[in-house]
Amino acid sequence: MLGRVEAAPISRRTIAMEPAPVTPADRGAERVSNVAIDFTAVKKSYGEKVVVDQLSFTVASGECFGLLGPNGAGKSTIARLILGMSSPEAGKITVLGEKVPARARLARRRIGVVPQADNLDLEFTVRENLLVFGRYFGMTAKDVEKITPSLLEFARLESKADARVTELSGGMKRRLTLARALINDPEILILDEPTTGLDPHARHLIWERLRALLSRGKTILLTTHFMEEAERLCDRLCVLEAGRKIAEGPPHTLIDEQIGCPVIEVYGGDPNELCALVKPLAQRTEISGETLFCYAPDPEQVLARLRGRTGLRVLQRPPNLEDVFLRLTGREMRD
């Protein structure tokens, strides 16, 4: 992102939440394992179109794993496959030791989901939404009432407990969806583009809440097309294009390996002409739309060459995941 936004000043309170009641079935399913989600050579297509192509990855317990890619890369399909809401044509999926989709219901008992589109019950209040959702996990009204205050506090919605969902802002709705996803005290959280469509303030608040969850040992699988989000939150990520994995690793390792030098973005002129001008001074250049990306170990030289030309907007910045994506695919991810 070009403009940085100050993070909202929020104290990091630790929230003690009541653990969900442990049923005998849960105890039986408890196995010592560091692997939360495992995909092996998974394939899924709709008609002729291959949406997930021979995809393998492993998410370890307690880590934040990101699926990064543009719209249509297969991110949401992967989330659906994990939940058993879609069946793979080939390959093997294991979630929390359960085979998916065959035993997806048992896995879902220990998963919380924040879907891409809000699907809260609009006619209900905040409190009622939690109650209704808790019942889907076999909780009684009493069970839900007991944990509601801590969930509302976590979501910073204490003052909105009896407000209807239609009265909430976009950011509040997302936080309620997050609180709702925590009702069964899940081990894994699946977040499908959790901050898409939110303003920067609301987005930073969600990020801060997600980090609080990670510090409590939750495993997070996050899909996003938003590189700043992936860079800030993810321990490791998998970059996707058209259902295929094109890179995997910790964000900064990927950036260092693929780019490894400062970036100068130039726009406002003819990118092809500018490209010819600075090419000798750069390690690599890339044109995307009307913007010239110039990867230069010595940015001062490039800036000096461009100085004096009017009408140009020039921005020097450290490399980021967008550059990695651009390098690997030849096109931009932002849309």
């Binding site: 939940l83 809401m85 008992r109 989901v113 699907n119 809260l120 019950d121 889907y136």
Partner: peptide, 14 residues
């Protein structure tokens, strides 16, 4: 339209 079922299908219910 309301996607209520989508939300429910993410829980223990089939």
């Amino acid at each position: 339209a309301q996607r209520t079922w989508d939300a429910i299908l993410c829980t223990e219910l089939t």
